[in-house]
Amino acid sequence: MTVAPATSKGAATREAILEHAYGIACSAGLEGLSIGALAHAVRMSKSGVFAHFGSREDLQLAVLDTAAQRFVAHVFQPALRKPRGLARLRTIIEQWFDWVRHEDDGGCLFLAAVSEYDDRPGPQRDLLLQQDRQWRQALAHAVSLAVEAGELRPDIDIEQLVFEIYALPLLVHHDAGLYGFEAACSRGLRAYDRLIGAASLP
């Protein structure tokens, strides 16, 4: 099916579809995206929805892109306003923990998508891998800047530290739903401080 050319009205309609699709995917997963339910939510026909996305797969990929843009805006962009070094790195972590609140949209789309596609080859999994690698690289860059600033030991294993830091938001997300966000965030920050303390110069 041919996708409709972009116009200002068409772009606005596409964004409205993506907004609703993102909300559905956060609570039901990308596989839970139903064209019929989505068309009903935006008061369009199924063919009208497909006019903006060539297939259900294209819609899923567009939702992943939308989620990634929101994630970067929430987690990484605020950190860029902080000085290079541990101040910036901590802001990334604080914002990442805050990202897992999801009080209004039902949950983290990425964690749901990973559980759906981690063992299913295809463009959805490829895009998830690409996004994940970009965020790990951004985290590694922030750690490297802290090393250059003399705040972390020059002999640390950056890849290992990034792995351990990356694990914290995942566990905070897990515990936030079961035990409450505040308790999970507090424990996550304490764990982060211990990791950084062990990697810091004496």
Rank of each mutant, 00 (worst) to 15 (best):
R190F: 09
K46S: 13
I17P: 08
G54I: 07
L145G: 12
L152G: 05
Y179M: 02
L18W: 12
D132L: 02
R133Y: 02
E182M: 00
L152H: 10
D157K: 13
H52S: 14
F110L: 12
L171A: 11
V100D: 03
D58Q: 14
D157M: 07
A51Q: 12
R190A: 13
I92K: 03
D65W: 12
M44S: 12
W96S: 15
A73W: 14
E148Q: 14
A198V: 04
E164A: 10
A183F: 00
E164P: 06
G150I: 02
L89D: 08
F76E: 13
V147P: 06
C108M: 14
S55I: 01
A176N: 06
G150M: 00
R194V: 09
D58C: 05
Q134T: 09
A41V: 08
V172Y: 01
A199D: 10
H141K: 04
G54C: 05
Q69S: 12
D193S: 04
A198K: 11
M1P: 05
K9I: 11
D104E: 15
D126N: 09
R153C: 10
T91E: 10
S45A: 13
H174V: 10
A73Q: 15
P5H: 04
L64S: 11
K82V: 07
T7Y: 05
A198G: 07
D119R: 06
R153D: 14
A12I: 02
P78Q: 05
A191F: 10
E57S: 10
P123A: 14
R14D: 04
I165Y: 03
T7F: 01
C108D: 15
L64I: 15
D132T: 06
Q137I: 07
R56P: 01
Q60L: 11
V75F: 06
F71E: 15
W135L: 08
S144E: 12
F71P: 13
S115A: 15
E103F: 13
A167D: 10
A140G: 03
A21Q: 09
S47A: 15
G10Q: 01
G180Q: 00
E19V: 10
E182F: 00
T2Q: 12
L127K: 15
R101S: 06
G107K: 09
R88K: 12
G197V: 02
E116K: 00
S27N: 11
A149Q: 04
R187A: 07
A51Y: 02
A28G: 10
A51C: 05
F110A: 14
H52P: 05
A167E: 06
Y192D: 07
E94Y: 04
E19Q: 11
L171H: 03
L139N: 05
A68Y: 14
G177N: 10
D98T: 05
R125K: 13
A191T: 08
Q134C: 09
F53M: 06
A51F: 13
L89Q: 04
Q134E: 09
I35R: 00
S200C: 11
G177P: 05
V63P: 13
